[in-house]
């Protein structure tokens, strides 16, 4: 269910840590990178590889808000609405994403192109409001620029 590449990556991770349970978060990242989310089956696979019981894997995977438990759209918009971004108008951006792309927080657009997750502070307060699209940080976005920014993501 995981590709050989992903399996190799997990084995490489195992070589860097002193005990296998410590590899859990990095391994879940490998899964998420490959599949876009962490399915129950993937949790079982990771548990098997690291000798961690599957219920334990689930407990860990669900504790961290960046591990996705559902399939996501092609691109993930992680928009910060914490205080600094809020006072700079982040809430307006949420409205725009809903109106223009049909995106609800934790939802995916009908065409499967974007998913939206509302973030707590992403450490870009000097460029508020800010968002991550996949791994790219976009700061100082506003009602006028957000569409152009997103247009680059097919």
């Amino acid at each position: 269910m995981l590709s050989d590449k992903a399996l190799n990556e997990i084995h490489l991770i195992k070589s860097k840590y002193q005990d296998s349970r410590s590899c859990l978060l990095p391994s879940l990242y490998v899964v998420q990178k490959e599949n876009g989310w962490i399915s129950p089956a993937a949790m079982e696979t990771v548990g098997e590889l690291l000798s961690v019981p599957d219920a334990t894997v689930k407990g860990v995977a669900t504790f961290y808000s960046m591990f996705r438990r559902e399939a996501m759209g092609r691109h993930l918009i992680q928009l910060c609405t914490n205080v600094a971004c809020m006072i700079m108008g982040a809430e307006r951006l949420v409205d725009i994403l809903r109106d223009k792309y049909g995106l609800q927080p934790n939802g995916t657009s009908a065409d499967g192109r974007f998913s939206l997750v509302i973030m707590e502070c992403i450490g870009a307060c000097d460029a508020a409001p800010a968002m991550l699209v996949d791994a790219d940080l976009h700061g100082n976005i506003n009602e006028n620029t957000i569409m152009a920014t997103l247009d680059k993501y097919a």
């Binding site: 859990l24 978060l25 504790f63 707590e120």
Partner: peptide
Amino acid sequence: FHLVVHQGAGAYICGEETALIESLEGKRG
């Protein structure tokens, strides 16, 4: 001396050092 970057996954509490250690050990932070 060996150095590894260990990526957290969206939990503010993992900044607290004992929660951070739990998280590093592959546990709920």
